[in-house]
């Protein structure tokens, strides 16, 4: 296996990749912990300063930014969408993978097709008009509902269930007299938990980062965290430490999730890629 050991070039390349991946985040921390005068000095500062706490307090206390509200809203939106998408996808995935019914393949193809259409960009005008007529603009409902439709989730859970829950298992449970929902709860759910975790983490991150639709349908008075950063950026464009402290706050929850579930995220991504 000597063939697989890395050359110097490989090591250098990996080092550069790790450095470049981490650098903008490090930079965020540097500016977020400095003063505004430091942020615009030449040459730029390369080490963190001592003002991080101060700057974060300033962001949280800024009445116009509504940053705390933005964080809370993003948390609500991401959690509700994640839980719903995971449940909907697990149910549908079980159905497609383990149950026989008329039109199954046709419906599955339909799911695949929805994955290929960028609905958020394509359907933005009617979706907005729908929210206006329901008087939901400016509310979190308007952000949450369109994202409950997630073709990728159904596809992923179908693939995962196929491999994790053999048909024989389902049939054996049925012979024992278990009802379909019971089989789902007792047999399928425990087996597909890793797949649910991957889908859940994925959905949470996508929702936390979502930008275009909330920018259209929400107002700065009731923002998600991305919208809150955007208004900070627009209103206090020269107050770099304020903006950067905000961006640092906005990624802390994601980094926490990532560090906690890093192994599953990497593993899940790689597994999903090969199966898809």
């Amino acid at each position: 296996m000597t063939n697989w050991s890395p050359t110097i070039l490989t090591r250098v390349m990996l080092g550069v990749a790790v450095f470049l991946s981490a650098f903008p985040l490090y930079w965020m921390l540097v500016i977020a912990s400095r003063t505004n005068a430091d942020a615009v000095s030449v040459p730029p500062p390369f080490l963190p300063g001592g003002n991080l706490g101060e700057n974060i307090v300033a962001v949280l206390n800024n009445e116009d930014a509504k940053f705390l509200l933005g964080l809370t809203n993003s948390f609500i939106v991401a959690t509700v969408v994640t839980v719903s998408v995971v449940i909907i996808s697990t149910l549908a995935g079980f159905s497609f993978a383990n149950l026989n019914f008329k039109g199954r393949n046709l419906l599955l193809v339909l799911v695949l097709l929805t994955m290929a259409v960028p609905l958020q960009q394509m359907g933005v005008v009617p979706l907005y008009r729908l929210m206006v007529s329901l008087e939901w603009t400016g509310t979190l409902k308007a952000v949450i509902l369109p994202y409950l439709l997630n073709g990728f989730g159904v596809f992923l859970m179908t693939q995962y269930t196929r491999q994790a829950v053999p048909m024989e298992l389902v049939e054996a449970a049925r012979v024992d007299g278990a009802a379909t929902l019971r089989i789902w709860w007792n047999v399928v759910l425990p087996a597909v938990r890793p797949g649910m975790a991957v889908l859940g983490i994925n959905t949470f991150m996508l929702m936390w980062n979502d930008f275009m639709w909330p920018l259209i349908v929400l107002t700065p008075d009731n923002p998600t965290v991305q919208i809150a950063i955007t208004s900070l950026n627009a209103r206090f464009s020269t107050n770099y430490t304020l903006i950067f402290a905000g961006t640092a706050l906005s990624i802390i929850p994601l980094i926490a999730v990532f560090v906690a579930f890093g192994r599953q995220i990497v593993g899940g991504l790689m597994e999903g890629a090969v199966k898809a």
Binding site: V18, N209, V225, Q226, I229, T230
Partner: peptide
């Protein structure tokens, strides 16, 4: 670490 960029928010990164 090479996946780290993916989990940071797009807007935050664009600001940086």
């Amino acid at each position: 670490s090479v996946l780290l960029p993916l989990v940071t928010s797009v807007v935050a990164v664009a600001v940086v």
